[in-house]
Write a protein that binds this DNA or RNA. Structure first.
Lengths: 219, 219
DNA sequence: AAAAATAAAATATCATATATTATTGTAAAT
DNA sequence: ATTTACAATAATATATGATATTTTATTTTT
């Protein structure tokens, strides 16, 4: 039996974060400590610690003496997040293509392989795998930028990516073959070390994803 | 009598953050809860909440079941932070120059005026005012980018700026007249809406600041 | 219908109990 | 004598439940 090495705190942190990103708790929901206590099996203090972390991450809004709320969504916010993802990921991609070695290339190949296999399954209608698919999507994009040699940048990107992901999950749309093609094009441009091309396609890829998302949002 | 609106939590958060940024607590220091309890007059739970926030911000490193530590410094990290500040602030500056109205211009003028007055005092040898000076420095740079119309970007920038500031405080160097000149040039370029020039000088300004800082760091 | 007073609910804080890690001391082995 | 391994102790971090404030909802009064 595998011993669960993590603390109560960090595992509840992951659970709550997951539930916010995947829309299980709706934007704006008040996170009452009493309710959370029952749902996540943790004490009030432990929960408060994790809610404070999530509030620094920007997934939760802490209102002084009034409690915690799931961060709201809006078109404006999505636009901001999208712009930031383009800025951070394109920048990281350039450096990564510049610095990456063969080891890195291998990881990109592997990540794209896993993503592509999943993309085919989802395209065939296997809607059970959506969470896995989104995970592989994230892992592919991460793999492409992982050689950028800037841990701080990767940390920021990770948070922004998760926020972007929440919007995608909230209005779940399937771009189907076109998104698959874009991934493939990014993959090829990265391997041929064509930074300009890779950045161009990535930018379009992110903006296309936003386009489908934004029309389904209120406001 | 002025009612103190903030909670014990957020005021200790500010205090600890301040003490980390201004080098009162050295990098790598273990933040023992018992000691903090005495120094900051707050309960362990409250402290843990705030340490978790600071750890998400990146000023504190939380090691599972081993406690909290002030984040380490290194040349590599400073380079990363500097690159990120250039990336974020230049991007924000372009949008700000594009979008800013007269109201915004007025704020930039005011912020530069305050900064410049303080710069003269510090140049004359008034070393007591360093903290105030750095605050006005930050407020000036913030003023220039505040019209960028992207709250998420401003939030990221604020955190990165504070990290950059910590490095400056750790190796406190005075660039004197040259930094003052750069501020003035940025100021003028911003008011004349010359984005390319403003970005160019800002980039140099940030990199020059790094140059003086990095040589005094270990590693 | 508006304002004030009261009751209920929720948050912020604290002190304490439990689990984990670090330290010290002791005995066996090199 | 020095090192290694183990056990006992001390120190520390994590987690919990209880209490004190504050906010929100309800009722009463004008």
């Amino acid at each position: 039996m595998i011993k669960d090495a993590t603390t109560v705190g960090s595992s509840t942190y992951e659970k709550i974060k997951h539930d916010i990103i995947f829309g299980i708790i709706a934007p704006g929901t008040k996170l009452k400590l009493g309710t959370l206590k029952n749902n996540y099996d943790a004490s009030v203090s432990t929960l408060r610690e994790m809610l404070n972390r999530l509030s620094s991450d920007g997934f939760v809004k802490a209102e002084e003496q009034r409690g915690f709320f799931v961060t709201d969504v809006s078109r404006k916010d999505l636009e901001e997040i999208t712009n930031l993802r383009v800025l951070l990921e394109c920048n990281a991609l350039r450096y990564s293509i510049e610095n990456g070695n063969t080891e890195w290339e291998a990881k990109v190949v592997a990540a794209h392989h896993k993503l592509h296999a999943m993309e085919k399954r989802v395209l065939e209608g296997n809607k059970d795998d959506i969470e896995m698919w989104k995970r592989y999507d994230g892992e592919f994009h991460l793999a492409t930028i992982e050689a950028c040699n800037n841990e701080n940048l990767l940390k920021l990107h990770s948070t922004i990516y998760d926020k972007y992901l929440r919007y995608q999950m909230l209005v779940l749309t399937y771009r189907g073959q076109s998104a698959i093609d874009e991934h493939h094009e990014i993959f090829q441009a990265v391997l041929s070390r064509d930074a300009d091309k890779a950045v161009q396609i990535l930018t379009d890829h992110i903006l296309n994803g936003q386009k489908d998302t934004i029309v389904k949002l209120p406001e």
